[in-house]
């Protein structure tokens, strides 16, 4: 298998601050690969290094088999980038944004006009083609940024927090488009701090925290390895009671005490609920499947979204 992205001991330092502290990565063609982590975990720094706009401070990095420092321009010609904050050109219209961006990639004017129309169709912005960028909603701007990143028919699409700040409906539209790209065989690399986004889109992901990779695998693998099948969430009227790890014996593998609730990790939620009710008298009880949030909590001791 050819690795599209290959990194060993990749490091990024800003002065005395280490943003990325020696990570190893291999992303293969056609994969949807995710970086999951809270703000400040080093996700965006890693993405900028892969996007060839941030020279690595140490380690090796190969993108499409090339060196980002020497061949940055050639690599960027084969990537599509959706940055964290929209960098649309406010002085141009929606369609002009796509046209000039295609020209930056060396496409001919005729090709790029055709391509722009197709892409506007794809992100459902055809009616807004001649509108200015400024009055567009956050979701529309995001979709336009995605369309712009696709103008050169990239082999790899980098998405830095593609749906942060969007309302739930707009997020689903974006997810739907990304899912279609994935089906077409475009390699997706994305960062997110939404576990549902990671579970929806990613074949494989790494959990990042403090500039390092805490775990790696498919969402299912990660849940299987770092969490239990089910979680029982207990809420209390006042303070959650202090209980030890072995308070429920074999029935509970692990206990997490959060400010507002108690999480009991178990393989058999239904069996645990009556016992928990009787012993702790919670105000409410919820049985749910384990998610990546639980994986993250286990790995870092913190929740993803504060």
């Amino acid at each position: 298998m050819d690795a599209l992205i290959h990194a060993r001991g990749l490091t990024k330092q800003f002065g005395s601050i280490t943003a990325v502290a020696g990570i190893d990565l291999d992303v293969t063609r056609g994969e949807a690969f995710g970086f999951l982590g809270p703000n400040g975990a080093g996700k965006s720094s890693t993405m900028r290094m892969i996007g060839c706009v941030s020279p690595p401070s140490g380690g090796t990095l190969r993108i499409l088999g090339l060196d980002p420092v020497k061949d940055g321009s050639a690599i960027r010609g084969r990537l599509g980038v959706v940055p964290q904050a929209d960098t649309l050109d406010n002085e141009l219209t929606v369609k002009e944004n796509l046209v000039i961006y295609g020209r930056y990639f060396g496409l001919s004017r005729a090709d790029v006009r055709k391509r722009a129309d197709e892409l506007l169709e794809f992100v459902q912005l055809s009616e807004r083609a001649d509108s200015k960028v400024e009055p567009l909603s956050g979701g529309m701007k995001r979709r336009l940024t995605i369309a712009r990143a696709l103008v050169n028919d990239p082999e790899v699409l980098l998405l830095d927090e593609p749906t942060t700040g969007l309302d739930p409906q707009a997020r689903h539209v974006v997810w739907d488009r990304l899912f279609r790209l994935k089906q077409r065989g475009v390699t997706l690399i994305l960062t997110t701090h939404y576990m549902d986004e990671a579970e929806q889109l990613c074949d494989r992901l790494v959990v990042m925290d403090g500039g390092t990779i805490a775990a790696e695998g498919s969402p299912l693998e990660l849940i299987r390895e770092y969490s239990t099948r089910e979680v029982v969430e207990l809420r209390f009227a006042g303070e959650a009671p202090e209980i030890g790890e072995d308070a429920f014996g074999d029935l509970v593998q692990r206990v997490e005490v959060l400010p507002d609730r108690l999480l009991l990790y178990t393989d058999d939620g239904d069996a645990l609920v009556p016992v928990a009710h009787e012993r702790l008298h919670p105000q409410s009880v919820l049985v749910r499947r384990s998610t990546l949030e639980d994986v993250f909590l286990r790995l870092t001791g913190r929740t993803l979204v504060d």
Binding site: G51, V53, G72, S73, A74, R76, G77, L79, V81, P83, A85, T87, L88, D89, N90, E91, Y101, Y104, F105, G106, R148, N152
Partner: peptide
Amino acid sequence: YGKVYDSMLATPLG
């Protein structure tokens, strides 16, 4: 302010 060059540097432009 416009971040115009940021977007250009994500393309082959340097």
